[in-house]
Amino acid sequence: MKKRKIFCLILLLTLIFTISFLSADAANVTLKLGNKEADNHHESLALKKFAELVEEKTNGEIKVDLYFNEALGKPDTQLENTIQGVQDIYVVGYYVLEKYIKDFGVTEMLHFFKNRDHFQRFLLSDLVAEMEKELLEKTGLRVISIDRNWWLGPYRVICAKKPILTLEDIKGLRLRAPDSKMMIRIWGELGANLTVIPWSEVYLALSQGMVEAATGTIMDMSYQKFYEVTPHITKTDEKFQQACLFMNNAKFQSLTKEQQQALYDAANEAGEYCTKLLYEGLDEALKDMESKGAIFHETDLTPWQAQARKALLEMEAEGAITKGLMDKIDALYP
């Protein structure tokens, strides 16, 4: 009987120790987060806000270490590291996921979405929810920015040493591209010669003549100072962009329910802050770039849109885009 009591006591103490250890472990968490933007980019400033909110909402139990400007590696490296758990959170656009879930490539369909509201409806739709469910099952990546409010932009442009105003101007143009099959295919159909170059190396590539032009948001032109080497900036608005916070699900599940909710809430609040910073800084950025030699252009994009639509239909016929998906996305726009 005495031995049994001692055994039960040891078992109880072991259980108490284990629970205490796990509680202490959950109360002292450091998350490693990386992105591709410079530290002065409004996305990065919003991530600083995210880190502050996480620490505040968890009473200091969780801290977020931030690594900007591809400090943790190029997109494929950071994505793979987040899947493997070497990195906890990666902040990037949906296009990097098309290698795992083909249909995520549709977020990069150029000249397809009618406006920002149409794109937002798509991101909040059951179509994307199903893609994210499959993503979680295949890779263990979980989206924690569930309000879909980390807007980039607010509109897209192409920068070059000469004005790019017609499809004729695009023919043979040596254009930088991200590693996106969708963007490479459609810009290629428009006539450009594409070279994949990491974002952190684009300025050097433009200045050394490796490429003649690059696309990005109007705010990218300011943050990255592309206008210094490619002063002609044409509004193209070929797609709409949001950043997304992807987290390693095993790490997420190791947290308490309260900590998980704190991450969701912090991501959504910081997303609102991200969009607020975007619009607050636009006018000043435009004036600053213009004072330093940037020349802004607008053009009739109708021929570009027609050519892009033709390319998208060809991709659907080839199976590169799931048949019927474009119709379902079109139907989301009232």
Rank of each mutant, 00 (worst) to 15 (best):
278 L>A: 11
278 L>G: 02
278 L>I: 07
279 Y>V: 00
279 Y>K: 05
280 E>S: 08
280 E>W: 04
280 E>Q: 13
280 E>M: 08
280 E>L: 13
281 G>Q: 01
281 G>H: 01
282 L>Y: 00
282 L>F: 00
282 L>H: 02
282 L>K: 01
282 L>M: 05
282 L>Q: 02
283 D>V: 10
284 E>T: 14
284 E>P: 04
284 E>A: 14
285 A>R: 15
286 L>S: 07
286 L>N: 02
286 L>A: 07
286 L>T: 02
286 L>C: 06
287 K>S: 13
287 K>H: 12
287 K>W: 09
288 D>E: 12
288 D>Y: 11
289 M>K: 08
289 M>C: 13
289 M>T: 12
290 E>H: 05
290 E>V: 11
291 S>F: 00
291 S>C: 02
291 S>A: 14
291 S>N: 13
291 S>L: 09
291 S>T: 11
292 K>P: 00
292 K>W: 02
292 K>Y: 04
293 G>H: 10
293 G>P: 12
294 A>D: 01
294 A>P: 00
294 A>E: 05
294 A>Q: 00
295 I>W: 05
295 I>T: 15
295 I>F: 02
295 I>L: 08
295 I>K: 15
296 F>N: 09
296 F>Y: 09
296 F>S: 06
296 F>E: 01
297 H>V: 01
297 H>W: 03
298 E>K: 05
298 E>R: 01
298 E>V: 11
299 T>P: 02
299 T>N: 00
299 T>Q: 03
299 T>K: 00
300 D>G: 08
300 D>Q: 10
300 D>F: 06
301 L>K: 03
302 T>N: 10
302 T>G: 07
302 T>W: 08
303 P>Q: 03
303 P>G: 01
303 P>C: 03
304 W>T: 00
304 W>S: 01
304 W>H: 03
304 W>N: 00
304 W>I: 05
304 W>G: 05
305 Q>M: 15
305 Q>T: 15
305 Q>S: 15
306 A>R: 08
306 A>G: 05
307 Q>I: 09
307 Q>L: 13
308 A>C: 06
308 A>M: 11
308 A>E: 13
309 R>C: 08
309 R>M: 14
309 R>T: 14
309 R>L: 13
309 R>W: 12
310 K>Q: 14
310 K>V: 10
310 K>P: 11
310 K>I: 11
310 K>F: 09
311 A>W: 11
311 A>H: 12
312 L>Y: 04
312 L>P: 05
313 L>V: 14
313 L>Y: 07
314 E>G: 11
314 E>W: 11
315 M>K: 05
315 M>I: 09
315 M>N: 02
316 E>W: 03
316 E>Q: 10
316 E>T: 08
317 A>T: 12
318 E>C: 07
318 E>M: 10
318 E>S: 08
318 E>T: 06
319 G>L: 09
319 G>P: 01
319 G>E: 06
320 A>D: 12
320 A>W: 10
320 A>F: 11
320 A>Q: 14
321 I>M: 05
321 I>N: 09
321 I>H: 04
321 I>Y: 04
322 T>F: 01
322 T>A: 00
322 T>L: 06
322 T>M: 04
323 K>N: 14
324 G>F: 02
324 G>N: 08
324 G>I: 08
324 G>E: 04
326 M>S: 04
326 M>P: 05
326 M>Y: 04
326 M>W: 06
